[in-house]
Design a protein around this nucleic acid. Structure first.
Lengths: 318, 318
DNA sequence: TTGTAGGCGTTATCAG
DNA sequence: CTGATAACGCCTACAA
C-alpha cells in the first residue's frame, strides 16, 4: 500500500516512508507484477552487441527507459530466427514490451516469430507492414546522397563494400547506391561490388580485393563505418594515400568516425535517437491500453563531409 | 509442474510439452519467482555505456548469462553514489545477483551502497577488501610494461594523458606509469601529465595541450585507447607524423586499435573475458547457497606492439 | 481513516 | 504416484 492512491494524511505518509527507508523495505517486484501484470521492464533484442552502433542504440534506450521508470532486459545474438524465438519465449512474462532489432530476418519469419507479442517496436526491420510499430532510418536516401556526392566529385569507378548478406540495412544501402548511379546514367560495373559483413576485418578484406581490381576504383563506399575503417587500414598498409589516391566513405557516422585518419566522410544516422524514439514509442504504447494504430517512422539521414572523400564540395546540400 | 522434478513417464511428458507449445503456454515468471525466490536475472550496473569498452564487457556477460539460463538487466550512468544507490534499489528483488562496475566510487562509498546486497561481483572497483567477490585487471603492471617499452625505445620526455579524475583504473595506470619512470631513474616532468576523461575528444584536447609544450614530448601515453585515438587525430591535424615525429600509445586494446592509422600500440586487456569471468563467478556463487569465501581475481594484461610506437623492439618481451 | 479478505500463478508439501 | 492445499507478497475492494 505504498502507492500514492488512497487518501492518507501527509504526516502518516511521511512517518511510514521514514520507517520504510530505515528498515530498507522495498516492495517485492515479483509479487507486485503478479497482481498488476506489469513488470516495468522493456526487453531489448539485438542481433549482436559488437561495435559502437549497438552500444549507442542501447544507450539511447537506457536513457529514456530510466526516465520513465522502466528497466532494460537486454539479450543479443539473435540474427537467426531460432535464436530470436528462444529469446522471445524466455522474455515472455518478464517484460511489458519489446524493442526488437532484427535486420537479418525477412518479413515473413519476423511476423511469425512476433505473432504472440503485444507491445513491440521494430528497429530497422524488414516488417514495415502494418500491425507493428516500427522505426527505421532512411538508408536508401542516405546511400543515394553519398553516391551523388562521390559522382559530383568526379568519381565514376566506385567500389562498394556491401553489408551482411540478407541484412535489411545492407540491402537498402546498396539499393540507394545503385539507384543513384542509375539516375546519373553511370554504367555500373558489378565487379566493383564486393561482399562485406559490417565488421572492420570484413572491410579490410573487401578493400584488399578492390585494390586488386584493374583498373582500380577511385573511391570506396563502405556500407557502414566499421568496414570503412577496415578499408582505411588496408589502404594505409598498401601505401595508397587517402583521399589523394583513393577516396573512402562510410555510413552511420559512429562517434569515432571523426577521429579516423583521415576523418571519415559518412552518412549521419541518429543512432542514439533511434533507441530513444523506439523507447518513447513503446512507453507510450504501454501507457495507452487501448490499441492505437501502429505506424512506421523513418528517421532522416544526412551527409557528413569530412576529409576522407577529398572534397567538401558544396554538393553536400543537394 | 513443468520442471524436471518428479518421476513422470517419458510419453506423458512429451504429450504435455506438445500441448504446452500448442497452447503457447509459458509459466508466469513473476509467480514462479515469487515462490522460488529466484529471478534468474543478473543485474549489470555500469558507470556509462559509451565506447567500445563497455559494449565488449556486456557482450562477455551476455554470452555466459545466456549459457547459464540467466537474463541480463542492464543499467548505466552510475558514476555517482546517488545514482548507483537508486539503481541498486530499483533492482532489488528483480535480480538474483549483481555485477557492479563502478570505478569512480571510492571504497567507502561503494561498501556502504552495497551493504545490503548479497551476491555481488565487483568489476574494476576500488573495494578489493574482503567481503566482496571482485575481478580487476592489472592496470599497474600494464602501464609499467608500456612505460618501460617507451623508455627502451629511447623516449625520455613522455606525455601522459590521465583518465577520469577519481577513477580507479585511471589512478592505477598513472601509478604504473610513474613507478616505471622512477625505477628507471628518469626524472618525471609533472607538466607532461595532462588530465583526460577517457573519451576521444578528451584525448584530442590533451594532445593539443601537449603539443604546445616546449620542448615537446617525444611520446604520448594515453590512459586508454579512446583518448589515444583522439590524440592521433590531433597530431594528424597538427601535421605531426606518427610515429616518426611523435609516438602514441594507448591502453585497453579495444577492437579498433589495430585499425587506426597507424595501428595503435596498446596494453591488451581481456575485456570480454572480464565480463565472462564476472558472470561465471556470479553464477557459481548463486548456485552454491552456502557462503563461500570471497576472493579478488586479477586478470593479466599484455603489451601489444603495433606501429604507432615506432619500434617493435624486442623490449615487448621483458 | 483503518482493517481485512480474496486472489494473482506458481511451487512445495503433505495426505491419500 | 496422484491430488488437494497452503504459501509466496502484494494490490484491490469493501466493510467497519
Amino acid at each position: 500500500m505504498l502507492n500514492a492512491s488512497g487518501p492518507v494524511s501527509d504526516a502518516t505518509r511521511r512517518r511510514i516512508e521514514r520507517i520504510a527507508t530505515r528498515l530498507r523495505y522495498s516492495p517485492n517486484s515479483a509479487a507486485r507484477s503478479l497482481i498488476t501484470r506489469r513488470t516495468h521492464t522493456i526487453g531489448v533484442l539485438l542481433p549482436d552487441l559488437y561495435g559502437e552502433f549497438f552500444s549507442e542504440v542501447i544507450r539511447g534506450i537506457d536513457v529514456v527507459a530510466q526516465r520513465n521508470g522502466y528497466h532494460m532486459l537486454v539479450s543479443s545474438s539473435h540474427s537467426e530466427q531460432q535464436a530470436l524465438e528462444a529469446a522471445l519465449g524466455a522474455m515472455r512474462g518478464r517484460v511489458d514490451g519489446l524493442i526488437v532489432m532484427s535486420p537479418d530476418l525477412d518479413q515473413r519469419r519476423l511476423r511469425s516469430s512476433l505473432a504472440a507479442c503485444s507491445a513491440v517496436v521494430l528497429l530497422n526491420c524488414a516488417a514495415n507492414a502494418p500491425g507493428f510499430d516500427a522505426i527505421k532510418i532512411d538508408n536508401v536516401g542516405g546511400a543515394s546522397a553519398m553516391t551523388r556526392h562521390l559522382l559530383e566529385l568526379g568519381h565514376r569507378r566506385i567500389g562498394f563494400i556491401r553489408g551482411a548478406a540478407g541484412n535489411v540495412d545492407a540491402e537498402e544501402r546498396r539499393r540507394g547506391f545503385r539507384s543513384a548511379l542509375r539516375r546519373a546514367r553511370v554504367e555500373h560495373d558489378a565487379t566493383l561490388e564486393v561482399p562485406g559483413d559490417f565488421t572492420e576485418s570484413g572491410g579490410y578484406r573487401a578493400a584488399t580485393q578492390l585494390l586488386a581490381r584493374s583498373p582500380r576504383p577511385t573511391a570506396i563506399f563502405a556500407a557502414n563505418d566499421s568496414m570503412a575503417i577496415g578499408a582505411l587500414s588496408a589502404l594505409r598498409e598498401a601505401g595508397v594515400a587517402v583521399p589523394a589516391e583513393m577516396v573512402v566513405v562510410g555510413f552511420d557516422d559512429i562517434p569515432i568516425a571523426r577521429y579516423t585518419s583521415p576523418p571519415l566522410t559518412s552518412v549521419r544516422v541518429p543512432i542514439i535517437e533511434l533507441g530513444e524514439r523506439a523507447t518513447e514509442r513503446l512507453v507510450q504504447a504501454l501507457a495507452s491500453d487501448r490499441r492505437r494504430k501502429r505506424s512506421c517512422e523513418t528517421l532522416e539521414t544526412a551527409l557528413v563531409v569530412r576529409q576522407s572523400c577529398g572534397g567538401s564540395a558544396a554538393a553536400g546540400t543537394h
